[in-house]
């Protein structure tokens, strides 16, 4: 894990409004290549919105997001180019219902990257092996468990060979007994050195893998820092209260 700040992702003073309501207030944080940053905070705090601003599924009105030196928020940027380099995993999986596991993973390589049918399939098979679904290649989403579906979702994002992976509460829609298999796959990615920005309520996972935790409340960064510091000695009272509440639910 890197300690030096190479400015791979630099989020500065990002603000966003839905109509009159401001949902993000001057949010700033940085990540280096290979870092894992976890966004935590109560529901409605703006974590998911912040995450979606990074691949422009949500549009920030103010501020700057530099990814690898390029301004993400620039109106001239081709968002499709951006998205092929940034993978995203959804809370609700959002698997393409009409395609098999392989079909789901191969669609991007085939249609976006322009690989041949065969190359795309080979790549999809390899990614599904990687998430432990080598035996479910031709199953359809409706035939898979939630945990398996989410692993297909991860493979689908990985198949684009992204330089940054976004996880939007990847385990929140899962039954408790299925969460483990998804976290395991995510662990593996951390070990491989993938750069990951994660929104999650899984505090023990955050603590184990994060280089930095960013605590958001009401659309503002309340506090950020390495997990040990944030979990053991939070500086702000709100952070402590939130962590206590979460702990009492576990």
């Amino acid at each position: 894990m890197s300690d030096s700040d190479d400015g791979f992702l630099r989020v500065s003073d990002v603000s966003k409004w839905y109509g009159d309501e401001q949902v993000l207030h001057d949010v700033s944080f940085e990540m280096s290549r290979g870092d894992v940053t976890v966004l935590i905070g109560p529901s409605g705090s703006g974590k998911s919105t912040m995450l979606r601003c990074v691949n422009r599924l949500a549009e920030a009105q103010e501020g700057s997001i530099l990814l690898d030196g390029e301004e993400v928020l620039s109106p001239d940027l081709d968002v499709d180019d951006l998205r092929r380099e940034v993978g995203m995993v959804f809370q609700g999986f959002n698997l393409f219902a009409h395609l098999s596991a392989v079909g789901n993973v191969a669609l991007g390589p085939r249609r976006v990257l322009g690989l041949s049918e065969r190359e795309a399939r080979e790549r999809a098979e390899a990614q599904l092996e990687r998430v432990g679904l080598g035996d479910q290649l031709d199953s359809y989403p409706a035939e898979l468990s939630g945990g398996q579906q989410q692993r297909v979702g991860i493979a689908r994002a990985l198949a684009m060979e992204p330089k940054l992976m976004l996880f939007d509460e990847p385990t929140s829609a899962l039954d408790p007994e299925l969460i483990g298999e998804v976290l395991e796959v995510m662990h593996g990615l951390v070990d491989e050195g993938m750069t990951m920005l994660v929104v999650t309520h899984e505090m023990s996972f955050a603590r184990e893998v994060a280089d930095e935790i960013v605590f958001l409340d009401d659309g503002r960064v309340v506090e950020r820092g390495p997990p040990d510091q944030l979990f053991e000695r939070p500086e702000k009272e709100r952070t402590g209260r939130f962590l206590e509440r979460i702990a009492s639910h576990d």
């Binding site: 691949n55 599924l57 998205r83 959804f90 959002n94 698997l95 393409f96 219902a97 684009m160």
Partner: peptide
């Protein structure tokens, strides 16, 4: 489901 389009956009489809 709307999430289907979102997912398509997220892998870079227009």
């Amino acid at each position: 489901d709307e999430g289907q389009i979102t997912a398509g956009r997220a892998i870079g489809l227009s």
